[in-house]
Design a protein around this nucleic acid. Structure first.
Length: 934
DNA sequence: GTCATCACG
DNA sequence: GACGTACGTGATGACC
């Protein structure tokens, strides 16, 4: 068929595929001779997936396009073009020709041309296809190709499975596809080393192009630009900008020696394809394709040479396809026994529970999934009911074909509690809490979510969907396709059993496969200790704390709510009176309009949405002169306390326990801190007198006392240690007031003459240092001129020279390794550390802060892991953690014993792994309420 | 769903 | 040399 109207051409960016395959996979080698084939393996999987997904599509023509040669016409124009690219990795180079052969084996047209980039060939083909009246889809996410979009040409980001049309381009560049090159010419590109106009990024470039219509127009009329700096740049750098445009402009007239007709879609020749895959020794994918074609797979001999170390994996686990129809529904004891036997045989089993909701303190168990071998998994439905509403008798009746729940748990309990069988979960805390409520104490276990966190904190999220996509190249079935969304959403027990099996069993399958990916990496990346001492053992401790919950007095809260409501009503009328009109005080936009628009007060700044910004510090400044902003601040405080605390907390009181059970997210903060949700009990007010009263609603059970123990200045102590600041260390050893000591050292004021104000300034600087200080930040915090703040910082660095060294060293380390580490070996990745522009400052400060905040987080984690044993003999329970504080509930008779035991654990938590050169000091408090204990 | 705001360490 | 900045979180109401 000749290419023309009605045809649809797919152009695949082959080089991008290769790099993605290379980086996504561990370094696999061919078993018989050690040839590196990881990227080839991933590449074949991607092609296979592409073929599978497009079998029934309207695509008539397809080609994979590659780069060839390193010297192109762009290098003749500009010798620095792409000059900053890293050398190709040694183990990738030999795989390049193999990817060409792989493409041919799949019988897909494979095109490249010496001296031309793949992008130019793609541009040429796209132009030709468009001219012939056909449709074109470019499978790539490369922004350099976006100039081709429009008029029948679109892009498809294969990673995100997202189509990029003209609108998508405009979103990215702020201009339509026809002006993309103009924007690129101005903004330049640090990846390709295109110079562009210095100091102008995509945002500014789009602004200019939109104003002047085109790059040429802009350069001709550069004199009209208002900003002097910009004008000068555009006039002086005209040559460089014009050169940049030539570099980014794709060549639509590449002299190709083939025609569109040569790219017609062809079926693969089974012999050729399987022959190639067998030669590469890709067992899994060979078998899969053979199965699909219903022919006998070629035999791949195990040719491991004598004495050679067998590679960890000969083929990525992602090579095995996901086939939901193959998952088994277990409906009786005999079938379940077979799975249990298999788990004992293997010594491990991936487990997942399905429940009626998300709150593990409330929901009911609906089913259980198991997987022992990748690709194989089962679902044991236990409590599915009919989804038919209105049926007087049938609606709540358990569906047929399900095991009795007690019988099932009775069979599984020995397995789940067996020391010799490792249970593998994604987020074990959730499933273990469910099992605990049904009388099963799961142990031992591994948790893929925690493994991912130990390996990759800072790089990406650790939810199953994200991990599956990233490490298994598989998008799991979304739960909402089963449950629906919003008001019409149903619970999992209403999902038909056969549908539930496909979804639920897949989760166990994914969990097992992720475990196989992560397990060997823990050692390789040297985070086994972090995982085994700071992550895995903490999970059951948190589970117990969550189950304990804390007693919250509903009456106290509801009375406070009423009082707040009254005060707010009064303030509201007062505010409307002062403003001279009624408006929504809760709307920052309307508040801004009133204050800065109507009343014309000074200092109104507009945010990125164009509305006036009205944060508290701005209103506080205005409040010195005017009543209205002061009243608004009062109203806001009450509104916050009422909606977030006194109202919301009541809804979180568990009907069965009468207590509030937060949920800790162990992987929530990149630094190693915990996060608390539903409700967040780590941000209960304490700084203002009115807010602190909320803590009076947190009470001890009758006959008990709440005890709070918190680390004193732990982050500053850690800073003193890691940065080796002798003066600070000494002050801590002598038990001095550290902020006063800092002030004394900096300003030369003797301690006995210290004023509160000088101490306050020193305190702000101490905190600033932990946060990666900047003159701007300190100036804003202390409300002093930036010059003065800079003076403070300079003096601080002068007096404590170790700080500067620590900061510089930390940033250098981050730049080199793309991560920083805590004293206990936790890694926090800093992928943005080499970014340019404003992002650079953020990344730097985060890198400086992370080891300090993270080490403190590690210390309290170690204490928490040891705490259950240390207080096992006391009538006490650990309830909450608030970053540097642990809250306990203890029988009134054992308060002092508890304080002694818990303080001992906390103060020595770093031992014996790390010797911290400064004492860790723990303060204790007690009382009937959290307000008194803290 | 995103933004602005504000609660905590 | 300009630009925008204190670090880490979660919940809420307004608004689209």
């Amino acid at each position: 068929m000749a290419f023309g109207k009605g045809c649809h051409l797919h152009l695949i960016d082959g080089s991008a595929y290769i790099f993605r395959a290379y980086h996504a996979l561990p370094p696999l080698t061919r078993k018989s001779d050690g040839l590196p084939v990881g990227a080839v393996s991933g590449f074949c999987n991607m092609l296979q997936r592409y073929v599978d997904e497009n079998v029934d599509s309207d695509v008539t023509h397809v080609a994979v396009i590659f780069d060839k040669g390193s010297h192109t016409f762009r290098n003749d124009l500009y010798d620095q073009y792409k000059a900053n690219r890293d050398e190709m990795p040694e183990d990738l180079r030999p795989q390049i020709p193999l990817t060409r052969r792989a493409t041919e084996a799949f019988n897909i047209a494979c095109k490249e041309m010496e001296g031309y980039e793949a992008d130019d060939i793609i541009a040429t083909l796209a132009c030709q296809a468009r001219a012939a009246g056909g449709r074109v889809t470019i499978l790539s996410s490369d922004k350099d190709l976006m100039q081709l979009v429009g008029d029948g040409v679109e892009m498809l980001d294969p990673m995100k499975n997202r189509t990029i049309d003209s609108e998508g381009v405009e979103e990215k560049f702020g201009v339509g596809p026809d002006r993309v090159v103009d924007v690129q010419a101005l903004a330049g590109d640090s990846v390709d080393n295109v110079p562009g106009a210095p100091g102008i990024g995509i945002k500014t470039a789009a602004l200019l192009i939109n104003e002047f219509g085109s790059l040429e127009e802009l350069l001709d009329r550069a004199e009209e630009i208002k900003q002097p700096k910009r004008r000068q740049t555009l006039i002086e750098k005209r040559d460089q900008i014009e050169l940049s445009k030539k570099l980014v402009q794709l060549d639509c007239e590449t002299p190709i020696d083939f025609t569109l007709d040569d790219l017609e879609v062809r079926d693969a020749e089974p012999d050729v394809l399987l022959g190639f895959l067998a030669e590469m020794e890709f067992r899994t994918i060979t078998k899969r394709i053979a199965d699909k074609l219903d022919i006998e797979p070629p035999v791949i001999e195990d040719k491991t040479p004598e004495g050679a170390n067998p590679p960890e994996q000969e083929d990525g686990p992602e090579a095995l396809p996901f086939e939901p129809e193959k998952y088994e529904t277990v409906r009786d004891a005999q079938a379940l026994q077979a799975w249990i036997d298999r788990a004992y045989e293997r010594g491990y089993v991936a487990v997942d529970t399905e429940t009626t909701g998300l709150d593990d303190m409330v929901v009911d168990l609906v089913g259980i999934c198991l997987s022992v071998d990748p690709g194989k998994a089962c679902y044991v439905p236990l409590a599915h009911v009919s989804d038919e509403g209105g049926d007087l008798f049938g609606s709540d009746a358990k569906l047929d074909g399900q095991m009795d729940m007690d019988r099932c748990l009775e069979m599984l309990k020995p397995l789940l509690e067996d020391d010799g069988v490792l249970k593998i979960f994604q987020n074990a805390k959730y499933d273990c809490k469910i099992f605990a409520r049904y009388g099963v104490t799961v142990a031992p276990f591994d948790d893929t979510m925690l493994m991912s966190y130990a390996l990759n904190a800072g790089l990406h999220g650790h939810g199953m969907d994200a991990l599956s996509e990233r490490y298994l190249s598989h998008n799991p079935i979304e739960i909402k396709t089963l449950l629906g969304t919003g008001k019409s959403a149903k619970t999992f027990d209403k999902v038909p059993i056969d549908e539930a099996t496909k979804y639920a069993a897949e989760d166990a399958d994914i969990t097992l496969r992720l475990w196989q990916v992560f397990k060997p990496q823990l050692h390789r990346k040297q985070v086994t200790t972090v995982y085994e001492t700071l992550e895995r053992p903490l999970s059951p401790v948190l589970a117990q704390m969550e189950r304990n919950g804390i007693k919250v007095d509903r009456n106290t809260l509801s009375q406070m709510s009423n009082a707040f409501a009254q005060k707010m009503a009064g303030l509201e009328s007062e505010i409307h009176e002062l403003a001279g009109e009624e408006f929504n005080v809760g709307s920052p936009a309307q508040v801004g309009e009133i204050l800065f628009g109507k009343m014309g007060l000074e200092g109104g700044k507009r945010g990125k949405t164009g509305k006036y910004s009205t944060p508290a510090d701005v209103l506080e400044d205005l409040a010195t002169e005017h009543d209205l902003p002061a009243r608004i601040l009062d109203w806001r405080q009450l509104s916050k306390l009422k909606s977030t605390y006194t109202d919301a907390l009541q809804t979180h009181i568990n009907a069965e326990t009468g207590r509030v059970h937060t949920s800790y997210v162990q992987t929530g903060a990149n630094t190693g801190r915990l996060a608390s949700t539903d409700p967040n009990l780590q941000n209960i007010p304490v700084r203002t007198e009115e807010g602190r009263r909320i803590r009076e609603a947190f009470v001890a059970e009758k006959g008990n006392v709440l005890v709070s123990l918190d680390y004193s200045q732990i982050e500053l102590r850690i800073l003193a240690h890691v940065a080796e600041i002798d003066a600070l260390k000494q002050a801590f050893r002598e038990g001095q007031d550290i902020h006063a000591a800092t002030a004394s050292e900096m300003f030369g004021v003797p301690l006995d003459e210290m004023t509160p104000d000088v101490r306050r300034q020193a305190k702000a600087i101490n905190f600033g240092v932990i946060y990666g200080i900047s003159a701007f930040g300190l100036a804003r915090n202390l409300r002093i001129p930036r010059e003065e703040a800079k003076g403070f910082i300079d003096r601080y660095f002068e007096r404590f020279p170790g700080i500067r060294t620590y900061m510089d060293d930390t940033v250098d380390f981050a730049k080199e390794h793309k991560f920083v580490q805590t004293l206990f070996g936790r890694k926090i990745h800093t992928p943005e550390i080499n970014a340019k522009g404003p992002g650079a400052g953020f990344a730097k400060r985060a890198a400086i802060n992370a080891p300090i905040q993270g080490t403190a987080a590690d210390v309290i984690r170690r204490a928490m892991v040891r705490m259950p044993d240390a207080i096992a003999n006391l009538p006490a329970r650990m309830l909450l953690q608030v970053h540097d504080e642990l809250l306990f509930e203890v029988d009134a008779s054992a308060v002092e014993d508890l304080i002694g035991a818990a303080r001992e654990v906390m103060e020595n938590a770093a031992d014996p792994a790390v010797k911290i050169d400064v004492p860790l000091v723990v303060d204790a408090g007690q009382g009937d309420t959290w307000a008194e204990a803290h």
